[in-house]
């Protein structure tokens, strides 16, 4: 067992056994397994890094140019007491990051079970299913923060942020992105066959959440009977928080609490559910 490569009768490549402490590995993994898993997502996404960066830098330029400058030019006067660009930038930031969160929650998770087999492989190691789900959230969280930072910087070039406190929009929209991510991740772990499910989710869940997120106009101008769509949309809550951070949008404290607690609750509930769906899928 501890043969360290003494050549046998026919010398050839051998495997060295250095006497790893397996129990120490297990103990560390019980604690840090989620972080150990998160490295997979980083490695797996590396080939797409250039594309991702192009989108991360390009999107804000296109959106801000089209909406902030284009649409802004025909919007008469101020919206919510600020220029249209200042009004729309937090909304676009939230929508972009939350949509990315939703995307990561569908195909990559489903594909991980079906094609890349990373969860199956991971479950041959000391990792537990719930740790892999938490690792995904960790890795995606990092991605969303990076994307938010890039968007924020590009928007700054447009002069979209009236104050430095607008930096707080970054954690706010990351919260919204993760609130889209974890419930979708949990659901995607239950999908056996690639189907129309994800198209439906994109069109009937993510899209309405975007349209009613108050991105281009305040949700309050909508008829009251449609406003509920915005209320269930993490994007709207993220947008509102980002606006408060950016230009100090007036908001009652209880509602601010809802904007923080609702996405947080979604993240936690989604994470808990994902732990269950991952285990259900992997444990035989």
């Amino acid at each position: 067992m501890t043969d360290t490569g003494t050549p046998g009768a026919d010398a050839g490549p051998r495997v060295t056994f250095t006497g790893l402490d397996h129990h120490a590995l297990a103990a560390r993994t019980r604690r840090w397994g989620w972080l150990q898993y998160a490295g997979y997502r980083q490695v797996a996404e590396t080939p797409f890094l250039a594309t991702w960066l192009a989108v991360a830098f390009g999107n804000p330029v296109l959106y801000l140019a089209a909406m902030g400058l284009g649409l802004g030019a025909i919007v008469q006067g101020d919206v919510d007491g600020v220029s249209y660009l200042t009004f729309v930038a937090p909304g676009l930031l939230a929508a972009t990051v939350a949509t990315t969160g939703a995307q990561f929650g569908t195909w990559p998770i489903f594909g991980g079970f079906k094609w890349q087999k990373n969860y199956l492989a991971g479950y041959s190691t000391p990792l537990e299913p719930g740790q892999m789900a938490l690792g995904e959230t960790t890795a995606i969280g990092v991605r969303l923060v990076l994307q938010a930072v890039i968007f924020w910087l590009m928007a700054a070039l447009f002069g979209a942020w009236p104050s430095a406190s607008a930096l707080l929009a970054i954690p706010a929209v990351t919260l919204a992105g993760l609130a889209m991510f974890t419930p979708l991740m949990a659901y995607s772990a239950t999908v056996e066959n690639e189907g129309l499910q994800f198209n439906f989710i994109q069109r009937l869940v993510v899209m309405p959440m975007f349209l009613f997120a108050g991105t281009f106009f305040p949700l309050s101008v909508m008829p009251a009977y449609l406003q509920w769509v915005g209320w269930i949309s993490p994007m709207w809550h993220g947008t509102q928080l980002a606006r408060m951070a950016s230009y100090g949008m007036a908001n009652p404290p209880w509602l601010t609490a809802v904007h923080v607690l609702y996405p947080l609750a979604l993240i936690l509930a989604g994470q808990w559910w994902a732990g269950r769906t991952f285990a259900k899928r992997l444990v035989g």
């Binding site: 993994t29 890349q116 087999k117 492989a121 991971g122």
Partner: peptide
């Protein structure tokens, strides 16, 4: 060491990255 009946390799990763990420799963 587990060698399952179906390989469960990530086909889109390089050979060495498959070993590397797997080793990281153990916290190595």
């Amino acid at each position: 060491g587990v060698v399952p009946q179906a390989d469960a390799l990530d086909e889109e990763l390089r050979a060495r990255d498959n070993l590397y990420v797997y080793g990281r799963y153990f916290g190595l």
